[in-house]
Design a protein around this nucleic acid. Structure first.
Length: 351
DNA sequence: AATGCGGGGTC
DNA sequence: GACCCAGCATT
């Protein structure tokens, strides 16, 4: 039997019941694909449902304020996806009359839509015969064909794309693409794949040669950088605080946070913060400072470990940018801040 | 070609 | 602690 036939047959029997599998609407397929980039289905699923409920059409998404989009995205990570999502929605709504481009080539021009996502939308929504190559595909193909080319090398990317294209069932690109990904997620898992029950085990070269654990090959380890954050949590007698939107290229661009003092070194017991900087950030020298947590909260991201101290800063009043404590839960914030707000129930705070 | 970008799950 | 997840944009 042919590779593609076995996969599709396995898929039809084993596929999960997922909301984006009940439609071919490009809007819904696009939304699901953006959300699932580098994201597990279990993590993305509730976000998808909330987005569809809040924004049933691309026009609804286009018309929403950015803050509302980011708030719904809060906790999903890689926030540039949400910003690009919104920008693309506006473009599709206003320039394309709400219709998504109808080919791989045109889809790829949309912001946030790369090779994988364009292939996924084109094949699933329009039956265009273009093969997807995601982490699942790399794993399945590298194992079955015992390909040792690194999946994050230029040569590897090209080789796997060509291999996937050859194998693609051109009469059923939608099912083939979803089948190979679902197969990678459920059967040919990264760790402890289910080889005994695998419908492809008789032809799998890595299994035959004992190379399952070595494949796929991926070069370079990610090195983790340590950072030291001191958040000032201003609280005025009016029960107001300060919260600002992050900008620039770094993490959490577009999300809100308290005034931040980042240091090069870890905080040591007994050390306090520079009066000058506090004055600069909260706009007064008349404040009472108290450290909220002696033990740092360690927030772990893929490439950074952020050692965090929160400092309560009490003062009489804040400037025109002050935000009522009751409003802070409306802002999109990093999980690090959301956890702090959850723990302190700051919106109910009063002096 | 290399790097940065989140948060959560698994082992 | 290391690796991975329906990747992409930028440099």
């Amino acid at each position: 039997m042919v590779f593609s036939k076995i996969l599709i047959s396995w898929y039809l029997k084993n596929k999960r019941d997922l909301p984006w599998r009940k439609t071919r609407e490009p809007y819904r397929i696009w939304l699901s694909e953006i959300m699932l980039q580098q994201t597990r289905i279990e993590q993305g699923l509730p976000y998808y449902n909330q987005f569809i409920a809040a924004f049933p059409s691309v026009f609804d998404l286009a018309e929403a304020p950015q803050e509302k989009v980011l708030k719904l995205w809060q906790g999903l990570g890689y926030y540039s996806r949400a910003r690009n999502l919104h920008e693309t929605a506006k473009k599709v709504a206003t320039e394309f009359n709400g219709k998504f481009p109808k080919s791989f080539k045109e889809l790829k021009k949309l912001k946030g839509v790369g090779d994988y996502t364009a292939a996924a939308i084109a094949s699933i929504s329009y039956n265009e015969p273009v093969a997807v190559v995601d982490g699942n595909v790399y794993r399945v193909l590298s194992r079955f064909f015992e390909v040792e080319t690194s999946i994050n090398s230029t040569a590897g990317i090209k080789e796997f794309k060509e291999l996937a294209s050859e194998l693609l069932d051109k009469n059923n690109p939608s099912n083939f693409n979803q089948a190979i990904m679902e197969f990678g997620a459920l059967q040919c898992k990264p760790r402890n794949p289910l080889c005994e029950s695998c419908p492809l085990n008789s032809g799998c070269l890595a299994l035959k040669n004992g190379k399952i654990k070595e494949l796929p090959v991926k070069l370079k380890k990610t090195k983790v950088k340590k950072r030291y954050f001191n958040y000032l949590v201003p609280i005025s007698e009016e029960n107001e605080t300060l919260i600002k939107q992050r900008s620039g290229k770094g993490i959490w661009h577009g999300l809100y946070e308290f005034p931040l003092i980042e240091t090069e070194e870890a905080w040591k017991p007994g050390v306090t913060l520079s009066e000058e900087k506090i004055n600069e950030l909260v706009g007064t020298k008349n404040y009472t400072l108290s450290l909220y947590n002696e033990q740092p909260v360690i927030h772990k991201l893929s490439h950074q470990h952020i050692y965090t101290h929160f400092w309560m800063v009490k003062m009489e009043n804040l400037g025109v940018e002050a935000v009522p404590l009751q409003k802070i839960l409306e802002y999109p914030v990093p999980v690090l801040i959301a956890n702090f707000l959850e723990e302190t129930a700051l919106e109910n705070y009063s002096l």
